[in-house]
Design a protein around this nucleic acid. Structure first.
Length: 257
DNA sequence: ATGCCCTTGCGTCAAGGA
């Protein structure tokens, strides 16, 4: 079973890119972020035609998350999590696919830092960590997949110091990510690739992708039972290279049955 | 210190992104 996370940066504007990647990568389940589309503009018919059922939580212009499942409908469990400080923003969706509970998240960016947006990021992160702990306590197979808007360490960044002052690299969100993983989750890409950066995002500015001036922002955290089934993990960089691509690339894990 | 580039909306600019 292959599970991916992909910040599409506008699902309608980049629908051809998304469909082409689905056709190549054939993931069984996908968490999507930054739909930038309200619920009634979600391209359900086009995805259905491509063989994917979907549940979504849209919002006009910003945010927006969805979960896709190949050859099936994801079984929706939540469109926000208990304790979400800003449930009016579409940043979480959760569904069961193939016996795995998938939490799809889009954590607030938090810039500029410091400031109210940074404070809101930390508040969202703290509330999410509390919810994640209840998922672990439930003992069910879970994958928390999404754009965490955190560069966990300097190794996850093309040049240490390149983002000084940026909300993505501040000690507080980094500590929150460490605390989340410490609950018992496995950071799948880092676990299987301890010596490669595994970037998932490259700025549109300054020819960043060609220079490989990237960062690792998109993560798949596995509950203990799922982690035992982990056989491979990667980033589909070719999806970032194409014309009209998102500034993120899909990240994925493969699980044994 | 800021812009670079790119998205969406009822819009020919603003706001958010990272």
């Amino acid at each position: 079973m292959k599970i991916a996370t992909y910040n599409v940066n506008g699902i309608n504007g980049r629908l051809p890119n998304l469909l082409a990647w689905l056709d190549r990568a054939r993931p069984d389940a996908v968490a999507l972020q930054e739909l930038k589309a309200p619920d009634d503009k979600f391209p359900a018919a086009a995805l259905e035609k491509a063989g994917y059922g979907a549940v979504w939580h849209g919002q006009s212009r910003w945010n927006g998350v969805a979960i896709l499942a190949r050859g099936a409908g994801p079984v929706l469990t939540r469109r926000s999590f208990p304790g979400d400080p800003t449930p009016e923003a579409s940043r979480y969706i959760e569904a069961a696919v193939g016996g795995v509970l998938i939490g799809g998240l889009y954590l607030p960016n938090g810039n500029p830092s410091p400031g109210p947006k940074f404070d809101a990021k930390l508040a969202w992160f703290a509330a999410f960590n509390a919810y994640a702990e209840t998922l672990l306590a439930a003992g069910v197979p879970v994958v928390l997949a999404g754009d965490y808007n955190v560069v966990p360490t300097d190794f996850d960044l093309y040049r240490p110091g390149a983002l000084d002052g940026n909300a993505l690299v501040q000690p507080e969100p980094r500590a929150a990510f460490v605390a989340l993983v410490a609950q018992g989750w496995t950071d799948a890409l880092r676990h299987l690739h301890p010596n490669e950066p595994m970037f998932t995002f490259w700025d549109y500015f300054r020819n960043a992708f060609a220079r490989d001036a990237g960062m690792r922002l998109d993560h798949l955290l596995l509950s203990p039972g799922v982690a035992k089934r982990l056989t491979a993990a990667g980033v589909d960089r070719d999806a970032r290279a194409g014309e009209g691509s998102s500034d993120h690339a899909p990240a994925w894990v493969a699980l044994s049955p």
